[in-house]
Simulated assay, not measured.
Amino acid sequence: MVGTFPFRRYRQALLGLTLLLPFALLLGAGIGAYPIPPWAIPEILLKGEGVEYQVLTALRFPRVLGAGLVGGLLALAGAVLQGLFRNPLVDPGLIGVSSGAALGAALFIVLVPGAGVLETYALPLFAFLGGLLATLLLWRLAQTPLGVQVTVLLLAGIALNALVGAGIGLLTFLATEEELRSLTFWMLGGFSALTWRLLLAGLPLALLALALLLPLARGLNALALGEREAFHLGVDLERLKGRAVAGAALGVGVAVALAGGVGFLGLVAPHLFRLLAGPDHRYLLPGAFFLGGSLAVLADLLARTLAAPAEIPVGVVTALLGGPFFLYLVLKHKREVYRA
């Protein structure tokens, strides 16, 4: 299946992306309104005092590390779901977790006005619970006597996204001007609100998502041949589907809870790795995680610097970059179908 691809190419791509992420983190930590030379960061940390140290440890590090984690989770979830659905155009938002999380956040913003300091922690919690409930609903809808039907899961996700969009539209209509501003900024996504406490609160769930998703590589490689062939190769299809959807929902739920609506990373990063190396999920899953984390950090860097001292929402930057890439994938897929 993937034996024609040289393993040296996979290893080189994975090694390069593993090195790219810390480089992007250093770049993101150094560049900003208060510039700090990236090569001086280790010395500043060893010194342990001064304005630069406070800027790095209190502001920059939780932001760039959170961006890397969010981007990695979205990209890993996207790679797993594309393998599960055997469709290169699948995005994590299609299983409803992103829209469910957005609805949970919108409900909190509009129905719990004046939350104050409570909003810092309760808003991500409501977003995570909204994504979790949406995923559980979709999973129940896709259950049949023959097991979970992936096609039904996809169609139900599309329908749920439409319903949630209507619900968010109604809440937007009911919101006050201040609530509407908060809702708009949260929906567009960003990493400016990330703190150490918020990041550490989401870390255990993020690690659980990684533990669920990364071991699925061999099963997804077999599934690329088809469900019947994967079954004959010894793959427990129901267990594979359950872990894939649960892990993706958990990862995307944490990402949306931490950063809001940051789109297209789950679609773009897996495809970029396939262009660099190939489709073997043993390398694709960790490669997508590292690449997605790097892209999120660099997108946040652009959002902070392009319109300084103002800040562009990160979701706008990722959409401007990911939208054309998605159109390219659609046109490429159309040409492949026509040639077949």
Rank of each mutant, 00 (worst) to 15 (best):
E336K: 13
V152E: 06
R86N: 06
G157C: 05
V316N: 07
G260V: 05
I158N: 10
D280P: 12
L20Q: 09
K334E: 15
L137D: 06
A166K: 03
L233E: 11
A277Y: 03
L14A: 10
A29T: 12
G68Q: 00
L327A: 15
L45Q: 14
T151E: 15
L171D: 02
G68H: 06
V330D: 11
E119A: 13
A33D: 09
F61Q: 01
M1Q: 14
V110C: 00
V256D: 05
L180E: 10
A201E: 03
F191Y: 11
G93Q: 01
L74H: 02
L89Y: 11
E178R: 09
L107S: 15
R274Q: 11
G147P: 01
L69H: 01
L220D: 03
A307L: 15
R8Y: 14
V51Y: 04
T18D: 12
P37Q: 09
Y121H: 10
G78M: 09
A162K: 00
V337G: 15
G100R: 05
P215I: 10
E238A: 12
N87F: 08
A115K: 08
A201W: 07
T195F: 00
A259S: 15
K241W: 09
G147I: 09
L207C: 15
V110W: 00
G165K: 07
L174M: 07
P286M: 04
G167H: 00
E311S: 06
A296R: 04
I36L: 14
L103P: 01
L170P: 00
L20W: 13
P286A: 04
P38R: 07
W196P: 08
L129D: 02
G114K: 04
L212M: 06
